[in-house]
Design a protein around this nucleic acid. Sequence first.
DNA 1: CAGAAAAAATGCGTGCACGCAATTTTGCGA
DNA 2: TCGCAAAATTGCGTGCACGCATTTTTTCTG
Lengths: 230, 230
Amino acid sequence: MATPPPGLRERKKQATREALREAALRLAIERGPDRVRIEEIAEAAGVSPRTYNNYFASREQAIVAAITADRQTRIAEAVAARPAGTRLADAVTEAVVEQYTDTGEHAQETLLLITAKTALRDAFLDATADIEQPLTAIIAERLDGADPHTAPVLAASVAAAVRIALQGWLQPSGTTANVSEVGAAGLVVPSGSLPDLLRATLAPLSPAFDAAEGFQEPSAETVAPSDQSN
Amino acid sequence: MATPPPGLRERKKQATREALREAALRLAIERGPDRVRIEEIAEAAGVSPRTYNNYFASREQAIVAAITADRQTRIAEAVAARPAGTRLADAVTEAVVEQYTDTGEHAQETLLLITAKTALRDAFLDATADIEQPLTAIIAERLDGADPHTAPVLAASVAAAVRIALQGWLQPSGTTANVSEVGAAGLVVPSGSLPDLLRATLAPLSPAFDAAEGFQEPSAETVAPSDQSN
DNA sequence: CAGAAAAAATGCGTGCACGCAATTTTGCGA
DNA sequence: TCGCAAAATTGCGTGCACGCATTTTTTCTG
């Protein structure tokens, strides 16, 4: 897609970017997030400290990028991979769940690291916004012809929902002094499975997706057997 | 509710906060956003530079706070002010529109200032997240008894949608270099009226709200008191 | 009303994000 | 193959965000 020759220059940039984020993560794990100086990260990646700042705006961003790296690429593919007949809501939901279920090699170790420092956790949560752009594109494609506002809003809503889910997921300790009570019932699930939490969090948005799709095709009831055998 | 005496200490804090943001905005307008040193802001507010940083994490945040200050307070009230019979989607939408339609005294001047510098624009957009918490509370109240996940997600989605709308609204002003035909009186109001834009952007979320409300009352369970046709 | 405890304000030091301008690297066409 | 223009890298300087320890202010108890 418009990148048969990805460009040699661009390759080098991506290589540098990867080297930087890998170095950042490795050092952060080795000696703790606070004991990593950007000078060391830059050196480990073979660039100057100033160049490091051309790639990442903060130390936390670099570290977190090591796990959120190609998420934005995979998310679009994952949605596109769903059969065309699938409800858009389901396609997006399952694609999102898929992204956060991989449990990469050092994912556990990294997640533990992130929960430790607040700044890292925030950076991690902010990184969910990265899926917004790809999602907007893929949703707009499926909703071709609908109101131009719809796709961006739905994509942003999904990103926001994911952020909510992750927020609640890695929150077991340290509560927030809230001014308003949210009911006497149980507030947040105590760190159940992340996939289930994501599904539950995205569920409230399904009607919006259905309506957007329905507006697309006025006829034919969408009563397809929503079997998610995966 | 728990604040008959808002606390004398808390009052002083809010006063200081207000003094800081007002000073920040005034100085930013007077001499441009880049020519304001935090030392001056602090001095104008009668506190030390270090104290300033206890209130705001960045210069941009302080400046922007001057216009987004009590938005989070007003938004909840605005929703609550809507008649009980109103669709929640409409109540929220109109409440949001109301917040961004006031056009305060120096709003025009300030908006122009914000469009100029990218950092300010970003801070302004990030400030929309402030309505998330109040919205969550008020929505959860109206949806009392529903899935605990719903309210936070809907609130976050609304905030995201508002951000999208604002983003698109103050877009055309790219760089701050070329001023060939924009003119001095050229207010940056590209895509029609902001209220309409907000409504259009929030529209895709309405089905989600409707579904949430419908799920609330499957069969007129929740007793509606005497008719309050107001 | 005194004295202690909690909370905020302040000073200081450190690391760093980022603008700017000079330098090196990369890509492209003659 | 040889420049030349665009893009990336780098060094430098400036302001500043934020942790930490100290001092001042406010609130709570006896």
